[in-house]
Every structure is written in structure tokens, then in C-alpha cells.
């Protein structure tokens, strides 16, 4: 399943980084993040104290005042509820505004994904989608497949028009195996 996900992600211009440990993931982030990193609330990332580890690695982490800080931020980091192998899609419950700001405005979006959360295809995704709808009265759920793209000028594919120009999926076992948690 992970292989299929990686192949599909690569096809849409996403970058997968297989991290053996969380330390590797932190190091990878520290190396690649350009500018302040938005870190919206996320149960799994909070449990692992990503913010602390990233700060220790020298990353400027933003975890409050998102509305003000987002326009000038360089990157956003989120977890993922689950991912879809067939299309290389990350599914992220983004009801909290901070999550949406972190994944729409900056040029880089990093996703920390536990490979155990990868499901096969859209038909496996639908029951999960339904459960996510049932948990909250209002919902903003996002399928994210690669970076933002356009082909509106002469149908030439160009990456990064309004949303992130770079999408990194850091695969790291041990983040979370709860498909409803981000």
C-alpha cells in the first residue's frame, strides 16, 4: 500500500520522504523549512511534542495568532487523518481555521503521515469520511493531492499558483494509527 501511495504521490509532484524515526522527520523539516513554520493544533503532533522538538532543532514554530502570522509564514506542518494510495491523496480534517491557513497560504506544506493510515482507494475512504462528518457538527475536510497547480495558460502545467508550491509527505511509523485523528 505504501509503495502505491508513494508512486501516485510522485506522479502528482509531491515529495515523499521516508523517515525511520521521528528524529529523522524533525531533521528533514529543519533542513527544508523556509521561514516561519505554522503548526496548527493536531492531537498526534501535540502528543509527540513536535513543536518542542522543532524549536530545539532551530525552526521558528508558530503555534498561535495564525490569522496574523500566516500571510508571511514560509511553511505549514500538519498530520493527516489518513491517505489514499490509488491517487496519492492526503486526507486532512481542516475544520479548525488554523489548519486551513497553514495549508493554503505558505509556499510549503509538510505532512507527517503514519504509513499505517494509508487506505486503498476512494471506496475505502468513504466510510471514514462519514465518520468524520458524524464527529463534528461543522466540517471542512480536505483531500490534498500534490501541490497547487494550474494549466490555465496555454494548458502548460505549472506548479504553485495560489496554494502551496511544495508538498512533502514525511512517512514515519509511530505517529498515530487512528484514522480519524489528524
Amino acid at each position: 500500500m505504501t509503495g502505491a501511495f508513494l508512486a501516485a504521490l510522485e506522479k502528482v509532484g509531491g515529495v515523499a520522504v521516508c523517515c525511520g524515526t521521528l528524529q529523522q522527520a524533525v531533521a528533514c523539516l529543519a533542513e527544508r523549512v523556509r521561514g516561519p513554520l505554522l503548526l496548527p493544533p493536531s492531537p498526534s503532533l501535540q502528543r509527540l511534542d513536535l513543536a518542542g522538538q522543532l524549536r530545539a532543532a532551530g525552526v521558528e514554530v508558530v503555534s498561535a495568532d495564525f490569522h496574523q502570522r500566516a500571510p508571511a509564514a514560509g511553511a505549514g506542518l500538519t498530520g493527516a487523518n489518513f491517505a489514499i494510495a490509488a491517487t496519492g491523496t492526503v486526507v486532512l480534517e481542516s475544520t479548525a481555521e488554523a489548519t486551513r491557513l497553514a495549508t493554503t497560504l505558505p509556499e510549503q506544506h509538510f505532512v507527517l503521515l503514519d504509513p499505517r493510515k494509508i487506505v486503498a482507494d476512494s471506496s475505502a475512504a468513504v466510510p471514514l469520511l462519514r465518520q468524520l462528518h458524524a464527529r463534528l457538527p461543522q466540517t471542512f475536510l480536505a483531500y490534498i493531492t500534490g501541490p497547487s497547480r494550474t494549466a490555465d495558460i496555454e494548458r502548460v502545467l505549472t506548479i504553485g499558483v495560489h496554494g502551496p508550491k511544495e508538498l512533502y509527505v514525511l512517512l514515519c511509523e509511530g505517529v498515530s494509527d487512528d484514522l480519524l485523528e489528524s
Partner: peptide, 8 residues
């Protein structure tokens, strides 16, 4: 196969 974003 799918667009970059599907927003629900």
C-alpha cells in the same frame, strides 16, 4: 486521476 484539492 484527481485534482489537487477536493474540499468538503
Amino acid at each position: 486521476l484527481i485534482t489537487s484539492y477536493v474540499s468538503w
